[in-house]
């Protein structure tokens, strides 16, 4: 279903801009995606009245944000950053340092988190010259180097080094939850926009065939750097929100490779290049993860490892593709 609609969107750019808007609203896929975003916000906005474990809700939202970030980077441009968590950590530390060292308020702190991760993304943008596994692992190395930088005693004066961050001065469970909901809303809206805008189309054109995209007048370097920055900003925002909610953390906690891998698997399992895929992927897999954790904790890691293997082998294109093929068969 989604795949067919994508082709529909693909026909748009040639037409005049006035028509595009009407077409956009006639486009079932766009309306569907926007509805998904709204439902999502609604569910989390009222989430605490039916789920008492607020941190579970926060973690779900944070992973959705990260999975959407991976979606932008991998789904739209084909770059899979294994070290994606580097931006998450940069955002968390942007929040922590600005609030506890420079005593800005929590909201400017969230902005600082995004800014720091964007700066890191710009510094790392030369990595975009690499492809495939090279890029994946180089980004991982960058994230690992970043955590060593943050926890080094020479950085103590700024980051509090190995002693970790404590945001008790801005601690506010209600406001930090609401901010995370808003952050998820912004990120989802950004993905909806990306998917349906000419910019998103340019990205997919590059992903499909870089040289013909360049020949048709797309500035490949600028466009993909911009996507990379958006993706990093998403992770930074997620990291800043997480930092605010969790309040006390060590460098290793917000730069953990597991966070990257989870976000990647959630996005892949749901289906990349779609709006709804990373969301569904996160709900299902993080749900399963927590269910295993509560019921059979002793086999936690084994089951999860095998689950990853099974997903890659049997649902390599994600749930969205399964949905599409089922729908396709039914409508035939």
């Amino acid at each position: 279903m989604l795949r067919d609609d994508e082709t529909l969107v693909g026909e748009i750019p040639g037409t005049a801009s006035k028509d595009r808007v009407t077409q956009l609203f006639r486009n079932r896929s766009f309306v569907g995606d926007a509805a998904v975003a709204l439902v999502l916000i609604g569910v989390f906005a009222f989430g605490r009245s039916f789920e008492a474990n607020t941190l579970l809700l926060v973690n779900l939202m944070v992973y959705m944000i990260l999975a959407q970030g991976i979606n932008v980077s991998y789904g739209f441009t084909g770059y899979l950053p294994f070290g994606f968590v580097g931006f998450f950590g940069a955002g968390a530390y942007g929040m922590a340092v600005s609030t506890s060292k420079f005593h800005v308020g929590a909201y400017p702190g969230l902005v600082a988190g995004v800014v720091v991760s964007v700066v890191v993304a710009l510094i790392l943008s030369p990595l975009l010259r690499l492809r495939g596994s090279y890029f994946a692992i180089a980004s991982l190395a960058a994230a690992e180097a970043l955590v060593l930088l943050v926890s080094n005693p020479s950085a103590q004066g700024i980051t509090n080094g190995a002693y970790g961050a404590n945001l008790s001065s801005v601690f506010n469970p209600g406001a930090s939850y609401v901010s995370t909901v808003v952050a998820l809303g912004l990120v989802t809206a950004a993905v909806v926009w990306l998917k349906h805008s000419p910019f998103g189309l340019a990205l997919r054109a590059i992903k499909a065939d870089r040289s013909s995209a360049a020949m048709s007048g797309i500035n490949v370097v600028r466009v993909r750097t911009f996507a990379w920055v958006i993706s990093a900003a998403m992770a930074g925002l997620g990291g800043a929100c997480y930092a605010w909610v969790i309040s006390v953390f060590y460098p290793g906690d917000v730069f953990s490779l597991t966070t990257s891998v989870f976000a990647i698997i959630f996005a892949l399992f749901g289906g990349i290049g779609t709006v709804v895929g990373p969301i569904v992927g996160t709900v299902v897999l993080y749900g399963i993860y927590n269910a295993i954790g509560i019921t059979v904790p002793q086999y936690f890691q084994l089951i999860y490892g095998l689950l990853i293997v099974v997903i890659v082998l049997f649902v390599p294109r994600g749930l969205a593709s399964l949905g599409a093929s089922v729908f396709g068969r039914m409508s035939r």
Binding site: Y74, Y304, L306
Partner: peptide, 27 residues
């Protein structure tokens, strides 16, 4: 055989072997 039929075998293999690594670690 399954990997090579997928859209992006190189990236998927990274994830796949991460899963295998987790399973080996658990065992």
């Amino acid at each position: 055989p399954r990997l090579s039929r997928s859209a992006d075998p190189e990236m998927l293999s990274l994830i796949l072997f991460f899963g295998i690594a987790q399973a080996i670690e658990a065992i």
